[in-house]
Amino acid sequence: MFITIRNLTKSFKKGPNLITPLQNLSLEAPRGEFLALMGPSGSGKTTLLNLIAGIDSPTSGDLMIDDHDVARLSRAQLTKWRSRHVGYIFQLYHLVPILSAFENVELPLLLMPLSRSERRARADAALDLVGLSDRAQHRPPELSGGQEQRVAIARAIVHDPELLVADEPTGDLDGESARSILALLTSLSQDHGKTIVMVTHDPKAAAVANRVLHLEKGQLVNPPATPASAVS
């Protein structure tokens, strides 16, 4: 299995209260699977996504991703692991406004021992893959929402990570842009073998995934379902 999660619990103190957004959650996902996480607000979707992405650490339980014991990595090790193995796609794109599309895509490559020409080649290829080669020198304010999300996806894949995590990637887009982003994510999973974990509130978005998981109060509430049954 590419992702193996066993009895994963995340809790933290908020004032006098102990909050437990995830409790004893277990799941597995094979390499190349496109997984959708659904559930009401506060159900623990984003917490699970952050744990899988390695930007947060669990309180207890096991989290193995491609043989990396992510739950046991130190903060510094997690940072390094993220820079090589994870691409993160945000709902609001979160591009750096003063950098061009090309420079935004190039950002993760600055952390790698690559020459300038190698970085250029990789960033160009990523922008080409998302269909934005002609917008490389445009800055985020000069792009539409859909284009910005494509740049964000190019930034997420430019260092060729095995795992892509997406937090409501179509949540801020109109219908047509959302469809095109979902088609792009499907292609990354099917044609490029990326394992994708996507949080969404949108049943139509979830429908493109191979599998939909439903969370409530920090736990999976139904057995893994096919997209059609989850949406219905």
């Binding site: 992405a53 930007i55 903060r75 510094a76 940072t79 390094k80 993220r82 820079s83 090589r84 994870v86 993160y88 945000f90 979160h94 750096v96 950002l107 993760p108 952390l111 930034r155």
Partner: peptide, 11 residues
Amino acid sequence: ILQTLGFSRLQ
């Protein structure tokens, strides 16, 4: 965001 992309504390 930079930290999410993998920028270390030192960077």
